[in-house]
């Protein structure tokens, strides 16, 4: 998956890009007569279609060159034990 910035000459071209990525548009704004959009590209097929569209593309993020973000997620529940302890100690067992 990629996050890309695309620059297109008008709103019809922008619409075509949005259709390719199934509406996964992060932002789009008009700059003069052009539109600059940030898009989420889900697979190779979408990327090929975007490349073939003639739009100027700039890759902002490529999931293949970064760690699997699942490793960023806590694998254990860091609060469960304290919740259980406070529940057992009854009302008012907390800090306040």
């Amino acid at each position: 998956m990629w996050i890309i910035r695309a620059r297109v000459p008008g709103d019809e071209a922008l619409r075509r890009l949005a259709d390719i990525v199934r509406g996964d548009v992060v932002s789009s704004r008009r700059v003069g007569k052009e539109f600059v959009a940030v898009l989420v590209v889900h697979d190779d097929a979408e990327m090929e279609k975007l490349s073939a569209s003639g739009a100027a593309l700039e890759i902002l993020s490529d999931s293949r060159t970064r760690p699997d973000p699942r490793q960023y997620v806590s694998s254990e529940n860091r609060y469960a034990a304290e919740v259980e302890r406070l529940k057992k100690s009854g009302p008012g067992g907390g800090k306040a």
Binding site: Y72, V73, S74, S75, N77, R78, Y79, A80, E82, V83, L86, K87, P91, G92, G93, G94, K95, A96
Partner: peptide, 21 residues
């Protein structure tokens, strides 16, 4: 690390227990 869903729910519960007033 980012909170998992279960962990976020536990943190909500923990805060309600820690600061009951």
């Amino acid at each position: 690390q980012y909170l998992s869903v279960a962990e976020a729910e536990s943190l909500i519960e923990l805060l309600s227990l820690q600061f009951p007033g």
